[in-house]
Design a protein around this nucleic acid. Structure first.
Lengths: 398, 398
DNA sequence: GATAAAAAGTTACCACACACAACATATTGC
DNA sequence: GCAATATGTTGTGTGTGGTAACTTTTTATC
């Protein structure tokens, strides 16, 4: 029985077709465990629509591969023989890297989503690729014993704020880091001796929110993230991330919202991110910079900021109105300072979005604040690493 | 009704997994034939990456099912035993229906894309669902003998200009037809005794262009169609049609292009379709109405229309600029009068699009005029019917 | 014209993946 | 303790595609 058969374009030059079926089913079961948490074998059987005996064999194989393990049944309270609980093996980990203007954050995340470690290392200057690699090496060196004794590392996932071509691992442009046409995946892989993958930070945040956050179970959603460096986003359409022909899709910050607006650094006029902007918000809040939690508090504390907040909400609504007619999403998730803006007046945003949308289309759309906070990028970057593993549990060697 | 192969999420309670593999392979081969035209068995073997013997068995099964047939090998001129040519059976047909303001167009399209018949029946009033069904019944009655003797009808595909929920076959709103919350698929199916499916006309046009027209082989494209009733569109993302949570995605005509613009009938302000508009164009061309080919001729003949054409092109470019950053498509295809506009000055649109896009993103994007003309909707609607057949050639009974 | 080489169809056989069914096991409820 | 229920376990069967040996049909060469 084939489960969530992703639209497999014919992959040329492959092997036996029975293998393919097996691979798919292993993938399905492991994905259930990773995304859905520990579950009884009986539950897995139900979810996968496979036969009891097949589920048993699949779980046994995942166990042998060291990707899952079984524990004693929990007290179900129901009649019948209790079913053992299957867990994704959290000792299989991804190393995550998130370079920022003034720091590099490194995480160790286990299969199943458990965050083992999170280290933020401040930097004097904006980190280069080489500097980022050195920081990661230092941190890993510091926990070498633990890594070797406890964990099996599946790879490195790097979240970069900028245009990233995930296919070849090259960052085309990361303005705030000053990276341009910079190979990233390859040098990381070479330096660390691990498989490495890079992607846009907002895209990874979208993945994270859609699996572990506000978008759980939703197939069509738009995620919008506001940070000091602008507005990024990601789109899940039919359960699949929108990538575009070169992987640059969902640059939602450059949606037109004001045709008489000022010029954006991207070269256009009236982009969402020139109008809805953390800098402008902090200005009326009387601050130069502020952490995300501070912004929430400041908004509540500074009533004079109200007009600017309302202006930004109304402009944001224009962009969301366009997204509603373009994507017809089930949910729009707002992260970063956009989440703070939303929280400041949910009703106003709701009303503005409905006014800025095709009649009838916006009403069924949920507006929500992102749930994952500090874990966001780390979780997303780990997902980048686990994606391969989940797609082919038996075939991935690491 | 599923359009392009939607990523099949787990379908509970189904049969054997070997069957599933077989189904997938049958589907692959038949889809090659339908989209790629007649091909030798050896070519199919190469494309499908299956074994010679397996391809042979699959083709034999498709033959038995009456969906394909083999003919004598063509003179290849190469050394070696020649391979028989496999054809999709064009006698397996879809009936297509396209209700419009003043007419209902009915087509009979064979597997492989061959158009057997196309009948346009003018109406006195805007057709209702019932009237459309009666017209189809009359036309089919008129060719009953031929239908029974020659063809096997796979189903009816209906293209409706409006918001359509393909899943339940209900038209939520088709303003120009005056249809609102109107069940369409079900009454058609009941009246004709055939399987029926409805979808938005622009979405179907997108499918048609992506398979048989300007978008052949492209995985990421945006199709924009301009007609008297406004601007519709469709998006192919990663080879899959964008559907949205309720099937209303890609209402691209309601993208914001002018934040100080006039109110659109949809309730918003400054929508693309209020600014780029066949009515305004015809006005400067000195006409009340005109067929598509006439528009091309008129644009060339009326130099005074130039400023309005350039204005519309520039506004169109703003919307395309947003689509470029949102979808990162490989190609943007312009149909209807948008094709005429484009043809009037391709260089200007190209330049405006690059000015209205994030630096560097627009350059690799192809701008093209749609290729399919009168066949467009008929081909698309047929695809709607064939989608099921292609997804499961052995399982579809009709 | 005979023969070799190449390409593809055909057939018998094999490995495998999962379903099924019979049986074994563990729990609840009476 | 016994029935009912749910689940794990095991052996068997069906169906899938791959493999390899063989056959067929063509072109190229002597």
């Amino acid at each position: 029985m084939v489960l969530a058969s992703a639209p497999r374009r014919l992959s040329p030059g492959v092997g036996n077709s029975n293998d393919q079926t097996r691979r798919h089913n292993l993938s399905t079961v492991l994905t259930f465990l990773h995304h859905g948490g520990p579950q009884s074998r009986a539950q897995l059987t139900g979810l996968s629509a496979l036969n009891r005996s097949t589920t048993g064999a699949l779980v046994a194989e995942l166990d042998e591969l060291g990707l899952a393990y079984e524990t004693e049944p929990a007290d179900s309270g129901r009649v019948g023989r209790p079913s053992p609980i299957v867990h994704a093996n959290g000792k299989v980990v991804a190393i995550t890297v998130n370079p920022d203007i003034d720091a590099v954050t490194v995480g160790i995340v286990g299969l199943g989503g458990l965050l083992h470690h999170l280290v933020r290392r401040e930097t004097d200057a904006v980190p280069t690729v080489g500097a980022s690699i050195r920081i990661v090496q230092e941190i890993l060196e510091g926990m070498r014993d633990e890594l070797q004794a406890e964990f099996r590392v599946a790879g490195v996932g790097i979240a970069v704020p900028g245009l990233v071509n995930s296919r070849d691992g090259v960052v085309a442009l990361a303005p705030h880091l000053g990276w341009r046409d910079e190979p990233v995946a390859e040098p990381f892989a070479a330096a660390l001796g691990l498989r490495a993958a890079v992607a846009n930070d907002a895209a990874l945040a979208t993945v994270a929110e859609s699996i572990f956050g506000a978008g759980r179970g939703v197939q069509d959603l738009v995620y919008l993230n506001g940070s000091a460096s602008g507005i990024g986003g990601g789109v899940l359409a039919g359960g699949v991330m929108l990538r575009g022909s070169r992987g640059y899709a969902a640059e939602l910050g450059h949606t037109l919202v004001n045709s008489s607006g000022i010029r954006c650094h991207c070269g256009k006029r009236g982009c969402l991110e020139t109008e809805v902007n953390l800098g402008l918000l902090l200005q009326v809040l009387g601050r130069d910079s502020a952490g995300l939690d501070e912004v929430d508090a400041l908004i509540a504390a500074v009533p004079d900021a109200r007009p600017e907040i309302e202006r930004q909400l109304d402009v944001l609504a224009l962009a969301i109105g366009t997204f509603v007619s373009v994507f017809n999403p089930e949910s729009i998730i707002l992260g970063g300072f956009l989440g703070s803006l939303y929280e400041a007046d949910p009703a106003r945003l709701r009303a503005s979005v409905e006014a800025a949308s095709v009649v009838g289309l916006a009403e069924p759309v949920r507006l929500e604040r992102a749930q994952l906070r500090s874990r966001l990028l780390t979780t997303g970057a780990a997902e980048l690493v686990f994606a391969d593993l989940l797609a082919d549990p038996a075939g991935t060697v690491f």
